[in-house]
Design a protein around this nucleic acid. Structure first.
Lengths: 111, 111
DNA sequence: TCGTAATACCTAGTGTTACTATGTATAATA
DNA sequence: TATTATACATAGTAACACTAGGTATTACGA
């Protein structure tokens, strides 16, 4: 199902910003949370998630902060920035525009 | 607007099959028709359309037939195949699944 | 205790695909 | 006569999700 891979394109960042817009999370948590909220549909691969997070961080849309757990394990929590919030709003409206256009073709209103 | 480019990925073929599922069309017509039906949203580039049509043809999903117009001009009409119809049904349901999952994240139900 | 699974992060390379830029050619219009 | 619209084509580019591999700790069952 390479379909899924292509459908994701351009939307991964939106999903990440959307989650982080609600609360800071770390990578592994994001993967689990996306799967849970989408009722099992989204199963982000690490090779998708971490490069995406780094991309967002480089763009100043999120900020990652290492946090040490008791026991020595490390987690990197990501916090959305103001810029990230603004981009999220843009992305959300772009998604709605796209969805509207798609529905006009894929599911034409029955007259 | 590189957003748009990425959002299109995986959906161009669905849109083409959807149009051709209703009636045979030629390339230029498809571009105009997609733009009209989407109220100006979709503006397929030739570098997107023709490779996509050839891809679909190679996959046996559509069949292209040259037709000569009075005056000597050539048009290539594309006809959807049975296989194309079946793929269209699959693609449509994949799109709906994806849309559902996206909405669960992007627009969580307000409680 | 030893292997496996879960947790937690990382990245080099691959494959797909929409698009840019460019080319050819005819018909209609200014 | 020049420009625009019609009509098709393709080589090369850029973006990005994913594969496959790596490191390391913690928990659990055999």
């Amino acid at each position: 199902m390479a379909q899924r891979r292509e459908l994701m394109k351009g939307n991964a960042d939106s999903l990440l910003l959307c989650l982080l817009g609600q609360q800071p999370m770390y990578g592994y948590q994001i993967i689990k949370e996306l799967e849970r909220r989408s009722q099992g549909y989204f199963k982000f691969k690490e090779g998708t998630l971490y490069p995406a997070l780094h991309r967002l961080e480089k763009g100043g849309l999120v900020a990652g902060k290492w946090q040490r757990l008791p026991g020595g394990r490390q987690r990197r929590y990501y916090y959305i920035s103001d810029k990230g919030h603004r981009l999220l709003a843009v992305k959300r409206s772009q998604w709605l525009d796209f969805l509207t256009a798609m529905n006009l073709i894929i599911q034409p209103a029955q007259t």
